[in-house]
C-alpha cells in the first residue's frame, strides 16, 4: 500500500529529476557533438548520405604521437571543376567539424593539408561535396595515445 507520506516522497523526487534533467541534457549536448550532429549542422545530411569513395585519399599517421598535432593530408583524383568544397571531420572529437575548404577550378587539384587536434582514437574523415549535390567520403583511423583537446 502506498501511504500518503510515500506518495509525497515519490512526487518530490520526480519533480526534482524533472527540474534537473533538462539542464543536464542541454549541457552535455553543448559540450559534445556526434558526427551526425556535425554533419547535420554543417551540411544538412546524415551519415547515410555519405558515399564511400576510393578516389579520395586521406593520409594521416596510424598512431599519432600527440593528439595536439596530427598531420592530415587529403587529396582526391576528382577534377576540381566538379568539386564544390572539402570538409574534414574527426568523428569522436567533442566538436567533429574541423575545417571546410571551398575549392575552385583555379586549384587544379583537389588537395588540402593541415594539422588537427584529436581528443582520442577516432577516424579522420574527409567529405567532398560535389557540384551535383552528392557527398563522397573516405576516412583513416588514427590511434591517439595522448589526447590534445585540452
Amino acid at each position: 500500500m502506498l501511504s500518503r507520506r510515500d506518495l509525497f516522497k515519490v512526487a518530490g523526487v520526480g519533480a526534482a529529476t524533472l527540474l534537473v534533467a533538462p539542464g543536464f541534457v542541454g549541457q552535455s549536448f553543448a559540450a559534445k557533438k556526434s558526427l551526425d550532429d556535425a554533419l547535420k549542422e554543417k551540411l544538412g545530411i546524415t551519415q547515410k548520405d555519405l558515399q564511400a569513395s576510393e578516389l579520395i585519399k586521406v593520409k594521416a599517421p596510424t598512431i599519432a604521437e600527440s593528439g595536439a598535432n596530427v598531420p592530415v593530408e587529403v587529396s582526391a583524383k576528382i577534377p576540381a571543376q566538379q568539386v564544390e568544397a572539402l570538409y574534414i571531420f574527426i568523428d569522436k572529437n567533442p566538436n567533429p567539424y574541423v575545417a571546410q575548404v571551398d575549392i575552385s577550378p583555379a586549384n587544379g587539384e583537389v588537395y588540402f593539408a593541415t594539422r588537427v587536434k584529436m581528443g582520442k582514437t577516432s577516424p579522420v574523415r574527409a567529405v567532398i561535396k560535389m557540384k551535383d549535390g552528392s557527398y563522397l567520403s573516405a576516412f583513416k583511423e588514427v590511434k591517439v595515445t595522448v589526447g590534445g583537446c585540452g
Binding site: A68, N69, V70, P71, E73, I88, I90, N93, N95, P96, Y97, V98, A99, Q100, V101, D102, I103, S104, A106, N107, Y111, F112, A113, T114, R115, V116, K117, G148
Partner: peptide, 17 residues
C-alpha cells in the same frame, strides 16, 4: 580558395593547398 577554420585545427596552424 577559402578555408573555413575551427578550433579543431592545431596551435600554430599549418595549411597547404
Amino acid at each position: 580558395t577559402k578555408i573555413h577554420s575551427s578550433p579543431g585545427i592545431s596551435k600554430n596552424p599549418y595549411f597547404a593547398i
